[in-house]
Simulated scan of single mutants.
Amino acid sequence: MNDFFIILAGVVLVGVPSTATASLSCLEPARPNLALLRDAGLSVEEVRSEFQTYFVDVEGFLNCINETSERVRVEARSAAYDLAQIRATFLNDVGSSPTPDGQVPADSNLDETGRLILFPLR
């Protein structure tokens, strides 16, 4: 029975899109609990080491979140261009001529907060 769950977990992880697995890799570090560290009888140097490790992990976590956020923004912009190409191709939008890099101007935008603004299809 345990083999079934291991195989099932493997199939689920293989089938999960890369965006979901990328966000799973950004694990928030657990903050050291000073009271527990004191109760455990750790020395000042050991407590300092625990907190230094925590701060290094926090920096890695924040970098991971920033990298994931940037990747998702790029993917969303690409999807917005794809939507504009579909509109230009299938709805004969006259104003959707390609830009010099071959992209069709998008009728959806990401504002600086990361909120995606989609304009309705005409």
Rank of each mutant, 00 (worst) to 15 (best):
Q52V: 14
A22E: 09
R77G: 04
R71H: 04
E28F: 00
T21D: 01
L36N: 14
S25Q: 12
Q52K: 14
Y81D: 09
E46G: 00
Q85E: 12
G60I: 02
L24H: 09
P32K: 05
Q85I: 04
L24I: 03
V72E: 10
S69F: 10
L42E: 11
G41N: 02
L42F: 06
V74T: 11
E75N: 13
P32S: 06
G41H: 02
D57V: 00
A84N: 00
I65Q: 10
S78I: 03
G41I: 00
Q85T: 12
A30T: 15
I86K: 08
L42I: 00
V58W: 02
C64H: 01
R48F: 09
F51H: 13
E59D: 13
P29C: 06
C26N: 00
V58N: 02
E28Q: 13
N33Y: 01
A76V: 11
P32Y: 04
S43Q: 08
D39A: 15
A20V: 15
V47F: 04
A40H: 09
L62M: 11
R73W: 03
Q85G: 09
L34G: 05
A79D: 02
L62P: 05
F55S: 13
C26R: 07
A40E: 15
A40M: 10
L83Y: 00
L83H: 01
S78P: 00
N66E: 14
C64S: 01
P32Q: 05
A76C: 06
E70I: 07
E67Y: 03
Y81W: 08
N63W: 03
D39V: 08
P29T: 03
V47Q: 12
R73N: 08
R87F: 06
R87S: 09
E28I: 07
A20M: 13
R48L: 08
L36W: 05
L83G: 04
G60V: 03
A84D: 05
L36R: 12
A20Q: 13
E59N: 12
L42A: 05
R48E: 15
A84K: 01
R38F: 12
L27N: 13
I86E: 11
V56K: 14
G60W: 04
V47N: 07
C26Y: 04
D39H: 04
S43D: 10
D82N: 12
R77T: 07
A30D: 11
A80H: 04
R71F: 02
L34M: 12
R48T: 13
F61W: 09
A35V: 09
R87N: 07
E67H: 02
I86Y: 06
R87C: 01
Q85K: 15
L24C: 10
D57A: 13
S43H: 01
E75S: 13
L27V: 15
C64K: 05
Y54D: 07
R87I: 07
R77A: 03
T53P: 01
T21I: 02
L24V: 07
L24Q: 11
S23A: 10
N66W: 05
Q52I: 10
S23I: 10
I86V: 15
A84R: 03
V44K: 14
S78H: 07
A40C: 03
A80T: 05
R73T: 06
E50H: 09
S49F: 13
Y81G: 06
C64N: 02
R71M: 04
A76M: 11
A35R: 10
G41D: 06
